[in-house]
Amino acid sequence: MTNLVRNINAALDSISAHWQPHRLTSINDYDVKVVKIQGEFVWHTHPDTDELFMVISGNLTIQLRDGDVVLGPNDIYVVPKGTEHCPKAENEVQALLFEPKGTVNTGDAGGDMTATLRELG
């Protein structure tokens, strides 16, 4: 990926499908992804990495086995590696994800919601 200035809002405007992250940029061995979220995802873990969620707009609930974490605009939460979680949003959420390159959105769960990482134009 070339070193271009990227606008988060413009990137989010270009996304039409929920749960389909797009790479906004990369830094070292990490991808910064934009994603639109609505509905409930799948319970999963990322055994080898933490996952950072930053909400741009909307309200995101990250369900954990020992209680929910609720995020609003400009909130950040890190799901520790190996922690089973299930994001959900009643209404559309726009968010950034920070993850090591190659991280699969469904972690160890796989299934129909597994996305192929898309590049922004």
Rank of each mutant, 00 (worst) to 15 (best):
S14N: 09
S14A: 14
S14Q: 15
A17R: 08
Q20T: 13
H22L: 04
H22E: 06
R23N: 02
L24F: 04
S26E: 13
S26P: 00
I27V: 13
D31Y: 05
V32Y: 03
K33Q: 13
K33I: 15
K33P: 01
V34G: 01
V35N: 01
K36D: 03
I37C: 07
I37Q: 00
Q38R: 13
H44Q: 14
H44S: 07
H44I: 14
H44A: 13
T45W: 06
H46F: 10
P47G: 07
D48P: 02
D50C: 09
L52A: 14
M54F: 14
M54Q: 12
I56H: 03
S57H: 06
S57R: 15
N59A: 08
N59H: 08
I62C: 06
R65I: 06
R65K: 14
R65S: 09
D66S: 09
G67N: 12
V69N: 00
V69E: 03
L71F: 04
L71M: 08
L71N: 08
L71V: 09
P73G: 13
P73L: 06
P73Y: 05
N74Q: 09
N74L: 13
Y77W: 14
Y77T: 05
V79E: 07
P80S: 09
P80H: 03
K81G: 04
T83Y: 06
T83N: 00
H85E: 06
H85F: 13
C86Q: 08
E90C: 01
E90T: 13
N91R: 11
V93I: 10
A95D: 06
L96F: 04
L96V: 11
F98C: 12
E99P: 00
E99F: 09
P100I: 11
K101R: 11
G102F: 08
T103M: 08
V104I: 15
T106K: 00
T106E: 01
G107V: 10
D108C: 07
G110V: 14
G111T: 05
M113C: 01
A115I: 07
L117M: 14
R118D: 05
